[in-house]
């Protein structure tokens, strides 16, 4: 019920912005589209963060790296394996597989031993694990940028765009795929965790392991399931996002994605999967509209007209941090979360 209201309110707000900005080429409409497109990735990563939080009550700092690792795997298979020509549709599952393997390895090495430790211990451990992964990426692949192709090319052979143009912004096919995948996953996972037996059981584990043991569900199995799924989501995010970011470098999914994703998860409520979806979209829009506002609105100081973004450098970053702080200080359970 509340979910519906919150989602409805957000949609209404965005619609309002779109209506107000209609017809104005320099207006915010294109930026709303950009916000949704970019926010979809934040949402996808946030889904993984929320899942881990529901299952292990910890913030997983390595969530981004599941994605980078998957992207590197696809890269290796498609670009560096010369003897056989591996098509995208075969390399992609391989990438996801490697990501899941990493997630399970992390679960076994780091999460399980610390199952009953204070959560900040586990937090530091996830940070260390993320750094370890990035370090290994650097050693294996060197810091130089690499290229990964998108699933569907942005332009066809003659250079015409393959995507859809909305409000004067061309949405390339990969972006549409990302938004679609996010929506689908949010619905599927949401359904899974609230309506199916297994899903409910997994949730129960996190709330009360003792009771779960009474019922007979293995703590370890659910832990593996959660981390494997989170790694799958992370891997998917990486494979989908890297091609449209221009280049693949070590730590690609952590720098620039993880903090907004965390903010999205916190905003949506760390225990709500639909919240992650919503939070991602909202944060994407906040970031993008902040860019637009910074460029459009000006202040006149000493007779010099300056756009906002030269007065407050890094306005989008500041906007995201403000959202994070506001949520944490005012309503830590976020929009759709259920606990303080």
């Amino acid at each position: 019920m509340r979910t519906g209201i919150v989602i409805g309110a957000t949609v209404a707000l965005l619609a309002l912005v779109l209506i107000l900005g209609a017809g104005d080429d320099g207006g915010p409409n294109a930026y709303v589209v950009i916000g949704i497109a970019t926010g979809a990735i934040y949402g996808l990563v946030a889904l993984g963060l929320v899942l881990v939080y529901k299952g292990s009550r910890v913030f997983n700092f390595a969530q981004g790296e599941f994605g980078t690792v998957a992207a590197f795997t696809v890269f290796v298979l498609m670009e560096q394996v010369r003897s056989v020509d591996i098509p995208y549709w075969a390399a992609l599952p391989a990438g996801l597989l490697v990501a899941v393997a990493l997630g399970l390895a992390m679960e076994r090495v780091v999460v399980r031993p610390l199952m009953n430790s204070p959560r900040i211990t586990l937090l530091v451990a996830t940070i260390a694990f993320a750094l370890l992964t990035v370090g290994v990426e650097i050693v294996l692949f060197l810091p130089e940028a690499k290229v990964l192709e998108p699933l569907i090319a942005a332009t066809d052979a003659s250079g015409n765009p393959n995507g859809v143009e909305i409000f004067n912004y061309i949405l390339e096919p990969q972006n549409i795929i990302i938004v679609g995948v996010l929506a689908l996953l949010a619905v599927v996972l949401g359904y899974f965790f609230s309506k199916t037996d297994l899903g409910l059981a997994v949730l129960a584990t996190s709330q009360d392991s003792f009771a779960t043991r009474v019922v007979g569900i293995g703590v370890e199995r659910t832990s593996r399931f959660i981390w494997g799924t989170a790694a799958f989501l992370g891997g998917l995010a990486g494979i989908l996002y890297v091609p449209i970011s221009g280049s693949l470098t070590p730590g690609a999914m952590t720098s620039g994605i993880l903090i907004p994703a965390f903010t999205a998860a916190v905003l949506g409520g760390m225990t709500s999967l639909p919240g992650a979806f919503l939070g991602g979209i909202v944060i994407g829009c906040v970031q993008s509209l902040a860019n637009w506002a910074g460029n459009t609105y000006t202040l006149t100081i000493d007779d010099v007209v300056k756009p906002l973004q030269s007065i407050i450098p890094g306005l989008p970053d500041v906007a995201i941090i403000i959202v994070l702080l506001l949520v944490l200080l005012i309503r830590p359970q976020g929009l759709l979360g259920s606990e303080a």
Binding site: V58, F59, P118, R119, I120, L123, F262, V266, L324, L328, L329, P332
Partner: peptide, 8 residues
């Protein structure tokens, strides 16, 4: 605010 959220 404590714990994980303070870390954030």
């Amino acid at each position: 605010i404590k714990g994980l959220y303070l870390a954030l």
